[in-house]
Design a protein around this nucleic acid. Sequence first.
DNA 1: ACCAATTTGTCCGTATGTATG
DNA 2: TCATACATACGGACAAATTGG
Lengths: 255, 255
Amino acid sequence: MIQGVATRFERIKARPAYELVAEEIEGKILAGILRPGDPIGTESELVKQFGVNRSTVREGIRLLEQSGLVARESSRRLSVAVPHYHGLATRMSRALVLQQVTFRELFHTSRALGPGSIDQAIDNRTDEDLEALDANLARTREMRHDARAVAELDAEFHRLLDGATHNRVLLLAKEPVNILVRPTTAHIIANNPSGIPRLIEAHGHLVDALRTRDREKGRLWIDRHLRDWKAGFEISGRDLDSAVEAIIGDGRGEA
Amino acid sequence: MIQGVATRFERIKARPAYELVAEEIEGKILAGILRPGDPIGTESELVKQFGVNRSTVREGIRLLEQSGLVARESSRRLSVAVPHYHGLATRMSRALVLQQVTFRELFHTSRALGPGSIDQAIDNRTDEDLEALDANLARTREMRHDARAVAELDAEFHRLLDGATHNRVLLLAKEPVNILVRPTTAHIIANNPSGIPRLIEAHGHLVDALRTRDREKGRLWIDRHLRDWKAGFEISGRDLDSAVEAIIGDGRGEA
DNA sequence: ACCAATTTGTCCGTATGTATG
DNA sequence: TCATACATACGGACAAATTGG
């Protein structure tokens, strides 16, 4: 292919106007000119400012809406929002499911994240965190014969444990993983309720480790807990290298 | 508040039609009825199927477009896509920046993720991974007097290191963190080039740990490397509890 | 390489239900 | 209570780009 010197041009960008609209507003938000809580102008205002049609503005707003940068407040009025974990994490989890990641990958990631996050929970936990964990533990003991309830309480337990790190970055990194872990765990518990006592024992020791700020103990029990999780998966007869298929909400729900 | 028995109704949900359109298509994708690569029907087709106006269909499609479930192929034609890491991770990082997470949170998260991911890299690395790392290392040594180049090569080094885990879940969990780490590191290196020899030394030992599959050594040097990173940040005179403010691309770029 | 049909991007005008003052 | 403003949704239209012969 013979190309003259003249081909050194920037690729011309005929981007749709609705993308440009979204990008413009996004830029203002990321630059801090528009701050969380600030109202986005009305559609008519934006129409005037950008000099494009109403429909075009609306399409642009849809993009921002989905990215979480703007959200409906009380009414239908749109304002700048701080994208919330859950929606983003849900989308990431979906991406993983669509990529057919394996249980093995999920397990090793949980394993990699375990010690570090229990350390931080031990360092940063508050008395309120302990209370919540104690309450969860008590409730789990009560419901130990109800596999469904135990699964839900286990999910809550680990949410509380992660929350005790008081580290938003860590929380966000773990959340997509947790979303995949949850349904798998529920399946394991339902399939093999005989593991519930061990689960409760592990939870108890973990809370204890947080209470006494005992890192050794924390790491020990999180490791056992994860091993049990893997063992439970294997007992349920599934292949470690089978794709994780989770039932995941759409992250759009209000709650 | 006296409430009659008749108040036990579900809250009625008048969701906009464009959301319903998006949800419907999303459901088909998640259920596997529409598979990656499949073209979304043309707008006119969707208009007929859903019985709504074309503008409404288009707004719905914008939501899917931003969520990454559909993407433009070569042309403007939209087809089902597997949401790509980078775009999602970028959005997550943005969320963290908007939440004004601190360097301290970022550091402790990196610290929590470090040992586990180096372990996995050691277990799963291939000879190709080693080659790429060697090449990166050689190049870094060459460019050791150019702080900018070193910063970029350092970013690439850690990308390669993470890639060597061959664990997509771990990769996705780390990516939002890495996006925040990168500009911070660049700043540190630019501010204090005297740390470059230590950085190169650490990289060398890490590659060595991967080559010999030496976990002890890997953990040791990733720990040192992270400590140096934190020390560099402190030397640059910034507060550990100051918010991370990163220059982040919009994740919409092509390439 | 050309043409015809299709499809997307954009625009205009209008109607309707609802929230705010 | 009423009036106004606004978001949602609809219909039709046209130019430019893409597709497929």
